[in-house]
């Protein structure tokens, strides 16, 4: 991906504005605010749980579209999931993406973050063959897995500049193939200049997602994404699905129910005494 594309050079010579190709990776996730666990079998009740586009990914979509609007170019939205994940692609289109690709195959099911980043990176390679990719954007993590590992996994596999927790894109210089971003660390912001192609994962604060226009919604409603399965991608089967996943889930269980504490006041104690007793306990627990 690093070598220069002849077409781009031609455009450069013509002194036209360079066009960017941005790939946004999104994930369809269950709305975890509605997750329940079967107390008997200790398994997750997935039935009836509505799915949404991972909230962080909405900001990735938004950032992709904003960059396109500022620098020109095109946004391709990519997702791996069951066939229903087509809805997520459609949501991407409604946010202003130009094209969508759905990676779906039973063979991909059960992939952990290592296997998932393999499938996604191979798909991006394929996209890049058709049309050179300058920037990949992901949400900082998904709300179901909460790992924040797939984005970096893609960056490493494709040898892209890895920029995680990006809170602001300061500038992009297409002629120099470089961009400057601000990364949100625990105690401050790190300002990084990176060579492109790059991959960035974004935090929610990077932007406010827009309210899609009605015509984009109409366009999205009947949009049929390209569907790439194992046959199309021809991946190494030892690297995908359960087989390609080094981690295995041994057990899923409900967090232990909270134990009731104590009633701290006795009859006849004054409110002042109780308040002071409470204060002492809270100081001991280091919560105030």
């Amino acid at each position: 991906m690093i070598e220069c594309n002849i077409d781009i050079l031609k455009k450069d010579i013509a002194n036209k504005r360079l066009d960017m190709h941005i790939v946004v990776c999104i994930k369809q996730v269950p709305d975890t605010t509605q997750a329940r666990i079967d107390p008997k079998t200790n398994t997750l009740i997935r039935e009836g749980m509505p799915t949404i586009v991972n909230p962080y990914d909405l900001h990735a979509l938004e950032e992709g579209v904003r960059i396109k609007e500022e620098y020109g170019g095109k946004v391709t939205v990519l997702t791996m999931g069951p066939p229903q994940a087509k809805d997520a692609i459609r949501e991407g289109i409604s946010h202003g993406c130009d094209e969508g690709i759905l990676l779906t195959d039973r063979a991909f099911a059960g992939s952990d973050t290592l296997a998932t980043s393999y499938v996604l990176s191979e798909a991006i390679k394929r996209v890049d063959l058709d049309e050179k990719v300058d920037l990949v954007i992901c949400g900082k993590q998904s709300i179901d897995g909460d790992t924040a590992q797939v984005g970096p996994g893609i960056a490493q596999r494709l040898d892209l500049s890895q920029l995680t927790y990006v809170i602001k894109v300061r500038s992009i210089d297409l002629k120099k193939n470089s961009m400057i971003v601000e990364r949100q660390l625990e105690d401050g912001r790190q300002i990084v200049e990176a060579r492109m192609p790059a991959l960035m994962t974004v935090v929610k604060e990077i932007n406010e997602t827009r309210y899609s226009s009605l015509s984009n919604l109409i366009k999205a409603a009947k949009y049929e994404p390209a569907v790439w399965n194992q046959e199309v991608l021809g991946l190494d089967t030892t690297k995908i699905g359960l087989k390609g996943s080094p981690t295995t889930v041994r057990k899923i269980f409900a967090p232990p129910p909270r134990e009731a504490g104590e009633i701290i006041n006795n009859e006849g104690e004054s409110s002042k005494e109780v308040a002071e007793k409470l204060l002492k306990l809270l100081i001991e627990k280091e919560v105030i």
């Binding site: 827009r210 309210y211 899609s212 226009s213 009605l214 919604l217 109409i218 409603a221 009947k222």
Partner: peptide, 29 residues
């Protein structure tokens, strides 16, 4: 065409005939 997350604020009428809807979306008619 299934259009979700969209509130219809009003109907558009022309000469007493209902001809469309006005939604809360940008370019929302």
């Amino acid at each position: 065409y299934i259009i979700s997350k969209t509130v219809v604020d009003d109907v558009i009428t022309e000469n007493g005939r209902v001809v469309g809807i006005k939604t809360d979306r940008p370019d929302g008619n």
